[in-house]
């Protein structure tokens, strides 16, 4: 069949055109296109990978931050607790100390009072003794001013002795 026999002319023209297109496109179209497609693809893949990495790092950092926060919170709570305890202990200690001081002072005061009281009492006793002696002297002087009375008294004393 005529249709199945290739014409040499068309064959040659096609070969020339195809090869020309091939060499031109290879140099000026396919290589740059394929190259930039490849570059873009690797670029995108890299960006995605680095984004993933950054995300992961961010996650890690966040976890770390949270941990740090927790620690700080725990620490502050601990510190607060300690401070509270310290305060209480200080107050208690102060209270105890003041109480001790007060007790001591009271005790000292009481002792002093006692001493003073004793001193005053002795003095009073001495005064009273002296007064009594003076009064007794005066009474005796007055009673024994006469001879009769002196006799009477001596008699009485003698009787006392006798009776004993």
């Amino acid at each position: 069949m005529d249709l199945l026999t290739p014409e040499l002319g068309l064959f040659v023209w096609t070969l020339i055109a195809f090869l020309a297109v091939f060499f031109i496109l290879r140099k000026f179209a396919w290589k740059p296109i394929l190259k930039s497609l490849h570059e873009r693809e690797t670029g995108i893949a890299e960006s995605i990978a680095s984004a993933d990495r950054v995300k992961k790092e961010m996650g890690q950092m966040q976890a770390e931050n949270e941990k740090l926060m927790m620690e700080a919170r725990a620490q502050s709570a601990q510190m607060l607790k300690e401070a509270k305890e310290m305060k209480e202990s200080i107050i208690n200690k102060a209270k105890e100390e003041t109480k001790a001081v007060a007790d001591k002072m009271i005790a000292e005061a009481q002792q002093q009072i006692q001493q003073q009281k004793m001193a005053a009492l002795t003095e009073v006793k001495n005064e009273i003794g002296k007064l009594a002696v003076e009064v007794a002297e005066k009474v005796i002087r007055k009673e024994l001013a006469t001879a009769d009375s002196q006799n009477g008294y001596a008699q009485m004393l003698a009787e006392d002795i006798k009776m004993n």
Binding site: L25, F28, A29, S36, E39, R40
Partner: peptide, 18 residues
């Protein structure tokens, strides 16, 4: 074909890859 492909290739060169 040459016109289409070369103009497209030029775009790739001009715009850069990304």
């Amino acid at each position: 074909l040459l016109w289409i492909m070369l103009s497209v290739a030029k775009k790739y060169k001009k715009n850069g890859t990304m």
